[in-house]
């Protein structure tokens, strides 16, 4: 368990914005360990836990994103029982969870709500199968 810097990025809620943010981070060699997209209609916020938050922030500002940082609690290997216990205790102590993200157990899950679920699923399947298949020969 650690207190870490979360970087939050303001984005317009339109296709391609997450990829733009991820691209900037990849080009800067900065790892994304966790993320969440929160939305309020036509705009939203991407919350990020980064391998190097200071440099990540720098890169994003250079690419003219509006960003802010805050301290958050990051927990590892949480199961359902632990989460129940933790949230109960926080509740008893009158501490509000403003938001939280992550997945439980050993599986890393990413949950996405898409504007077109069927087509999104197909695209995703396509990418996965091309990753599993041996590299296509270029002849």
């Amino acid at each position: 368990m650690k207190v870490r810097k979360q970087i939050s990025v303001f984005v317009e809620n339109k296709p391609g914005r997450l990829s733009k943010v991820l691209e900037v981070l990849r080009d800067g060699g900065i790892g994304v360990e966790a993320f969440m997209i929160a939305d309020a209609g036509e705009f939203g916020i991407i919350h990020l836990i980064l391998s190097d938050p200071a440099r990540g922030k720098e890169r994003l500002v250079e690419s003219s994103f509006a960003i802010s940082e805050s301290d958050v609690l990051v927990l590892g290997s949480v199961d359902q029982d632990l989460l129940l216990e933790l949230s109960t205790e926080l509740g008893r102590s009158d501490i509000n969870i403003q938001y939280a993200y992550g997945s439980l157990g050993e599986k890393d899950l990413i949950v996405m709500k898409l504007s077109d679920l069927e087509r999104g699923e197909e695209i995703f399947k396509g990418i996965l199968s091309s990753r599993r298949a041996p590299p296509a020969s270029s002849e």
Partner: peptide, 15 residues
């Protein structure tokens, strides 16, 4: 345009 000055990382502030 949202600037770094307005954006404090909270959705409800923006709303």
């Amino acid at each position: 345009e949202v600037t770094g000055d307005i954006f404090k990382g909270e959705l409800k502030d923006l709303v």
